[in-house]
């Protein structure tokens, strides 16, 4: 329990510190033109969120596949030496198959989103 307490304390500390830091400066009495986003003078009708989209969904899918793979890798790393060559072969297969995914994704152009 205590091992996990320290990171929590640190988080609280850091957040509080940064919060306090941002409270230091004087209150800004910003006017509307000051606040408006850079738009060459135009006024946005929508939230920025609605005007720009991330276009790399396929890439994120690939990422999730590897991220899941990662999760299985943590326990694997711990027992790796005990299990020996078999573990190497298994992970090799695993990564090999996922690598085909990368290749396919590359071919399909999922890394070009703009």
């Amino acid at each position: 329990m205590t091992e996990i307490a320290m990171p929590l304390v640190l988080v609280l500390l850091a957040v509080a510190f940064a919060w306090g830091l941002q409270r230091l400066g004087p209150e800004a009495g910003a006017t509307w033109p000051h606040r408006a986003p850079f738009l060459g003078g135009g006024v946005p009708q929508t939230h920025a969120w609605q005007r720009w989209h991330a276009r790399y969904y396929p890439m994120t899918l690939l990422f999730i596949a590897f991220e899941m793979e990662m999760m299985f890798m943590y326990p694997w790393a711990v027992v790796y030496i005990e299990t020996g060559t078999k573990a190497l072969a298994e992970m090799g297969m695993f990564l090999g198959i996922l690598s085909v995914g990368i290749l396919y994704g590359w071919r399909e152009g999922v890394f070009r989103w703009q």
Partner: peptide
């Protein structure tokens, strides 16, 4: 407001 704090917190952790 919180983003810099989180960033710092992650560094600390």
């Amino acid at each position: 407001l919180l983003a810099p704090g989180w960033y710092l917190a992650l560094a600390l952790v």
